[in-house]
Nucleic acid binder design. Structure first.
Lengths: 207, 207
DNA sequence: AACTTGACGATTGTTAACAATCTTTGTCAA
DNA sequence: TTGACAAAGATTGTTAACAATCGTCAAGTT
């Protein structure tokens, strides 16, 4: 979610065990769950590797988001009276703060999380879960194909979307979100690729 | 998926091990995956139970499907030229055959599978996965709240939807699907509840 | 008679040793 | 020098024994 583990990075069980101070069972359970979400790939007798989406999968993710997110935002704007949007307001404040302090991983994480919280605001558990999966997957893709500059969402677009929802302008909110997704996707360079990295350094920075 | 296991049915590890002739590891992996999809509930130190959705969750599932499936079908109808619909044609033939022979569990399974294959026809892996989860969840709900008669989708509606897609009538296809979902939902009796059952008989019928 | 407490049984959670598989390295020959 | 083959090492997959937790039943007390 923070793009600290590059695609194709190997996640060896022993390494994870000692890194997190945990038995193999816990690690294997975690790996199984991650693989069920498509975030890692479990190769038989070969180990776990961070998923490496190709061009086609990247397109599928954005196509799926284009299918779900616009109707979601539209619906959110139409029924925003009985919905608590303070979470989103606070979240944008966090995004701004992280941008000012230039905390790269934090900015990336929060950028994705905005869309997740958008889904959460719908109050629908399943919509929330689906969006969370798509957003984490998007993080992987942006980390792979994104130019280093625009690894996050453009600055004010989140805020504009939220304002459109608050003023119940459903049509505008939907349009803003569509172009927002287009901006993210068009900022990708589908030819560039990143090479696998050693996991030790990245993970050890965690604790 | 076939509504043979009633909600709240306990799935004991030992029972599953001997039933399927498999070690505990396999069983626990399966249970973990099922719980990650929300099909069963893993209670700590207490075991696994078939999920028992309440009224609110049932509404959420249908709301989520209402959000995704109509745009999906619309899109499918608009771009059906380069899409292979023979799978769906064949599938409806299977449904009819099962209906004629009055194979209850088969009818239920195929009814749900139609919607899954609809998503699969989009060629989008993520849309497919999401719909599959929603459909299996719907099976649980119909098994819980559905009257025994309309446990499956109404007879010709699937066929009508497919025809609308084939003739590229996007608007009609979307409308047909919306009312189809409404028919399923309105056929539910939100007050009725089914009691947990013993799992032995149901599972042993499998092999 | 009803409630609390304790022990027993059953079930799940964990650990560690073992087996199987793959990768790497080294040796030998062409 | 390069290729193939074989053995050793490392890593994952599985099994089985052990530990911990929970529910139940019985006994005792209020």
């Amino acid at each position: 979610m923070e793009q600290r583990l590059a695609p194709n990075t190997k996640l060896s069980e022993a390494r994870l065990c000692e890194t997190f101070g945990v038995g193999r069972m816990r690690v294997r359970r975690a790996l199984l769950l991650l693989s069920s979400q498509g975030l890692i790939e479990l190769q038989s007798n070969r180990g776990a590797y961070v998923a490496c989406p190709d061009k086609s999968e990247a397109n599928d993710v954005f196509a799926a988001r284009m299918l779900i997110e616009p109707p979601l935002v539209r619906q959110l704007a139409q029924s925003s009276s009985d919905i608590d949007l303070t979470v989103l307001v606070d979240h944008i404040a966090l995004e701004d703060a992280a941008r000012i302090q230039n905390e790269r991983t934090e900015i990336i994480r929060l950028s994705g999380e905005f869309h997740t919280k958008l889904a959460q605001a719908s109050g629908n558990k399943f919509v929330f879960r689906m969006m969370r999966e798509l957003v984490t997957r998007t993080s992987l893709i942006v980390g792979l194909f994104g130019s280093s500059q625009n690894a996050s969402c453009p600055d004010d677009e989140h805020n504009n979307i939220l304002k459109a929802i608050q003023t119940k302008n459903a049509e505008l909110a939907e349009q803003l979100l569509i172009s927002h997704l287009n901006h993210i996707q068009s900022g990708l360079d589908m030819e560039s690729r990143q090479e696998p990295q050693d996991d030790l350094a990245a993970i050890l920075g965690m604790d």
